[in-house]
């Protein structure tokens, strides 16, 4: 277990306007194949990435929101969302997708993946990581 590193992917950009959100998601899914301890942070405009009710037919782009629901299957169960970033944008937890994972060690009980944390707590979580990648 000692070679398992803590990886955090920090998402700070809105989806669709730029390619960052989708690229981050791809890298996250690929990294999951290496059995590391992966978590995601949603900070600043990154919180827009996991808003619910997205409908992309009108802009001719693939809607990648459903992919966030698959993260649990890839053992990615820690999605940290910054409270202050939500507040600045007039958003609450209710505006976000209900992303869950099934806990294999708890008879596949569904548990929420999203953890809303303060800016201070986010800094602490970042501090505990071995590797951080920012998108």
């Amino acid at each position: 277990m000692s070679d398992v590193k803590k990886f955090m992917y920090v998402n700070r950009k809105a989806p669709y306007g730029t390619i960052y959100a989708l690229e981050s998601l791809e890298v996250v899914l690929i990294s999951a194949a290496f059995d590391q301890d992966v978590s995601l942070a949603f900070v600043d405009d990154g919180v827009y990435q996991i808003m619910k009710g997205t409908k992309t037919d009108g802009i001719g782009m693939k809607n990648f929101s459903p992919v966030y629901n698959a993260l649990g299957d890839y053992d990615i169960t820690k999605l940290y969302v910054e409270q202050e970033s939500l507040d600045e944008r007039g958003l609450t937890l209710d505006d976000l997708m209900d992303i869950k994972y099934e806990d294999e060690d708890d008879d596949w009980a569904e548990k929420p993946s999203i953890k809303v944390v303060s800016r201070k707590e986010m800094a602490d979580v970042m501090d505990q990581q071995d590797v951080l990648m920012s998108f």
Binding site: P15, Y16, Y48, T54, K55, G58, I59, S65, G90
Partner: peptide, 14 residues
């Protein structure tokens, strides 16, 4: 622009 609004999950009442 409606299509850009809908793609980002923003409803009209917001």
């Amino acid at each position: 622009l409606g299509p850009d609004m809908q793609a980002r999950g923003i409803s009209e009442d917001r």
